[in-house]
Design a protein around this nucleic acid. Structure first.
Length: 409
RNA sequence: CGGGAUAUAGUGCAACGGCAGCACGCUUGCUUUGGGAGCAAGUAAUCCCAGUUCGAAUCUGGGUAUCCCGACCA
């Protein structure tokens, strides 16, 4: 993409009222725009990052047998009355149409996926089964905060699994744990992300959260000093020892919940009478699990973990582009290199602006945070090629044009 | 929802109750091109509704919005 054509611009200053690091950098770089508290437009650069994250998640969900679907956000009141959550869920957005019919804007999709599954699941032979989607969720947060970390409308991957037995759910749940670990590793935050025991609500003793250590987080976790499992503060009083290794020494950390996996049991299958026939011809309730990841929150967490005083430093796996090609002065060389990179399927943001100073281009490159910076100028050409620098390193080197692709790949 | 803070040009900041100003951005022209270039001329603003006052960006009341702390949060 040519930067001269990119409709968003970078800003020197972040908006005055914006305190959170992720929002300040993402807004300045032109990745997102705030519409109101808790609702952000995702701009072209930001959308490329979101799509990278989405594809990582999609690959891992497919790997554990998830089938992708897309359920409506606009949902009938009746489904929510069936589970009782129309009354009890206080962050549920409720809307009315012209004839006073009431709907929910989906904060989650158990109420939709359960009756959906009922239409297709008849036999134990149809199980296990898992479906997932990427869909906007609406939550009436009393206080949206921390930039894009806690929004009122956000894109979420939610996967729901269906099983004939608790044992089969347990087995699948362990696979989902591994898939989640892979996702956070691949997104570049694996080292600081802890599998965390958390409250399970009324129908299950515990759930598991994936908590990423950062000062921007709003949760407190206690990380086991010996096995690296963590415990959410909300259940710390109930647990004296690490449930994994019985150790009792913990490190307290602030963290943000980037993912949550949950054994639902029959909490949602029962009210919808979601049952199948077992081998003996008996009608048995289906056992469910659910597994969520908020994409804006994940993107914001990556930014919180990886930046310097000049801007964002994207991990290569989620960067909007692989290469930021910068042309200084007028030179034909840059155009040719741009074409060559594209031919080799390298995603490149080409700073071809001819009315912008070198300093401004460098400042933009640092702010946007693309992993590889390639500068083409009279000076670099005189030195024998192009100047290549990684965003997370200080030193640059001159690379012959013929060897550039090889260097980057 | 409780507490606190803030609200002036596209962005960031100034302005004693008395002519709304600066920087960046943007437009035009000339010059410039390796770390947010220079000169010149332009462009563009007091959150909303009341009140006090000869006079309100400034004081008072109400509203709205944003941020922070707390509460809440599969």
């Amino acid at each position: 993409m040519r930067q001269s054509q990119l409709f968003t611009k970078t800003q020197k200053n972040a908006p005055a009222g914006e305190m959170s690091l992720n929002a300040r950098l993402l807004i300045r770089g032109g990745f997102v725009d705030k519409l109101m508290a808790g609702a952000y437009t995702i701009l072209p650069l930001g959308l490329r990052v979101m799509k990278k994250i989405e594809n990582i998640i999609r690959e891992e969900m497919n790997a554990i047998g998830g089938q992708e679907i897309f359920m409506p956000s606009l949902q009938p009141k009746e489904n929510w009355e069936t589970t009782g959550r129309w009354k009890t869920m206080d962050d549920l957005y409720k809307v009315k149409d012209a004839s006073d019919r009431e709907f929910a804007l989906g904060p989650t999709h158990e109420e939709i996926v359960s009756p959906l599954a009922k239409k297709f699941l008849n036999s134990y032979k149809d199980l296990p089964f898992a479906a997932y989607q990427f869909q906007n969720k609406f939550r009436m947060e009393l206080r949206a905060k921390s930039g894009i970390l806690r929004g009122r409308e956000f894109l979420m991957k939610d996967l729901y699994s269906f099983h004939i037995s608790q044992e089969n759910l347990d087995e699948y749940y362990e696979k989902a744990k591994i898939a989640y670990k892979n996702i956070f590793d691949r997104a570049g935050i694996g080292e600081k992300t802890y599998l965390t025991f958390a409250s399970g609500g009324s129908f299950s003793k515990y759930s598991h959260e994936f908590q990423t250590e950062t000062e921007a987080g709003e949760d407190i976790i206690f990380v086991c000093a010996s096995c690296n499992m963590a415990i959410n503060r909300e259940i710390k009083d109930e647990i004296a020892h690490c449930p994994e290794c019985q150790n009792h020494a913990f490190h307290e950390k602030k963290a943000v919940e980037v993912g949550n996996i949950f054994k639902l049991g029959t909490k949602y299958s029962a009210p919808f009478d979601l049952t199948v026939m077992n081998e003996k011809g008996e009608k048995v309730p289906v056992i469910m699990g659910c597994y969520g990841i908020g994409l804006q929150r994940l993107m914001g967490t990556i930014v919180e973990l990886s930046s310097d005083e000049n801007g964002i430093i994207w991990p290569e796996s989620v960067a909007p582009f692989q290469v930021h090609l910068i042309s200084l002065g007028k030179n034909e060389g840059a155009e040719k290199i741009h074409k060559d990179l594209q031919k080799n399927n390298i995603e490149v943001l080409f700073d071809d602006r001819d009315d912008t100073s070198a300093g401004a281009k460098f400042a933009d490159a640092d702010l946007i945070g693309i992993p590889w910076r390639v500068v083409v100028s009279e000076k670099s050409l005189a030195s024998g090629g192009v100047e290549v620098k990684k965003r997370n390193e200080k030193e640059s080197e001159i690379v012959e044009i013929e060897k550039l692709i090889e260097k980057i790949k």
